[in-house]
């Protein structure tokens, strides 16, 4: 699953249309979905990010989940171009002075920039800021990192202004058009980024997991035995990619002694 996080409706709309996402009204915040792509409207600023992401994670928690923050940011005339899309390589939180570094594994070919996350929109031309300026990135990084790994969080920012306009006063049409212009790049990035998910696919397939679950419940395995079984099963699957876990390995047992004997036997078969 890939989950786009965007702050403004004007940012979300072009993405929803392009990816043909459907609204899911079961959430109290904007949530759209189609197959394994979804979008959460996180609102402007840091306030609602944690609650919305965690609510989403209650329903969609997978080890290959990827979060992609897509939105507009302020730039400087001497270091960025209006309308250009940048992959963010460093995030500084202006409040805490903490720096965050997203992993840059995917060969995206996008230009890169750093960003500083501020609490209030900068409208005075940006003064000493020599990077992009946004209002959500550091919070998104912090919140998502509580539940996924660094390489599962990415940030794409499109420069909308040179910090001479309040973000809320930039017209909806202008934002729509900025995002629309960069949809091909966004689409390519998402496709390339998705490839990273393959590297976290589980060694055990669904059929294997059903067998393990059956062994656990029918043999009434202890927690330690269950984890040992998982480990032996992974080793078995790696060494025997095409062999199935035989149902007849799991016997009917009537005592802990019988259970332990059968468990030991299974482990020996799996580790042979």
């Amino acid at each position: 699953m890939q989950c786009i996080l965007s702050a403004l409706k004007a940012e979300s709309d072009p993405l929803i249309n392009f990816f043909k996402l459907k609204k899911d009204d079961s959430y109290s915040f904007p949530f759209y979905k189609k197959n394994d792509l979804c979008l959460i409207g996180i609102g402007v600023g840091k306030n609602k990010i944690e609650k919305r992401i965690f609510t989403f994670l209650n329903d969609y928690n997978s080890r290959s989940l990827q979060f992609i923050n897509i939105g507009i940011a302020g730039g400087k005339i001497n270091n960025s171009e209006k309308g250009e899309i940048y992959l963010i390589n460093k995030i500084k939180d202006e409040n805490s002075n903490e720096n965050y570094f997203p992993d840059l594994i995917v060969n995206s070919k996008l230009l890169e920039h750093s960003t500083i996350t501020v609490d209030k929109a900068i409208v005075d031309g940006g003064g000493d800021y020599n990077c992009l300026v946004d209002m959500e990135a550091s919070e998104i990084y912090k919140v998502c990192l509580k539940r996924v790994l660094v390489h599962q969080i990415s940030f794409l920012k499109i420069v909308s202004d040179y910090m001479d306009e309040d973000v809320t006063s930039i017209s909806k049409n202008k934002i729509n058009s900025l995002i629309n212009e960069k949809l091909p790049e966004i689409d390519t990035f998402l496709k390339k980024y998705k490839n990273l998910q393959e590297f976290k696919s589980s060694i055990l397939g669904n059929v294997d997991l059903v067998w393990i679950s059956r062994a656990r419940s029918e043999l009434n395995l202890t927690e330690t035995q269950y984890h040992q079984l998982l480990s032996f099963s992974r080793g078995y699957r790696l060494k025997n990619p095409n062999k199935k876990f035989e149902d007849n390995m799991i016997l009917k047992v009537y005592s802990k002694t019988e259970r332990n004997k059968n468990f030991k036997n299974i482990c020996e078969i799996l580790s042979a």
Partner: peptide
Amino acid sequence: VDHYKDIFNRTGQDFQVQKKS
């Protein structure tokens, strides 16, 4: 970076994924 640990010791890294690049 201010200090190498800001990048090398980040929480939530995946050794094997990072080995790809």
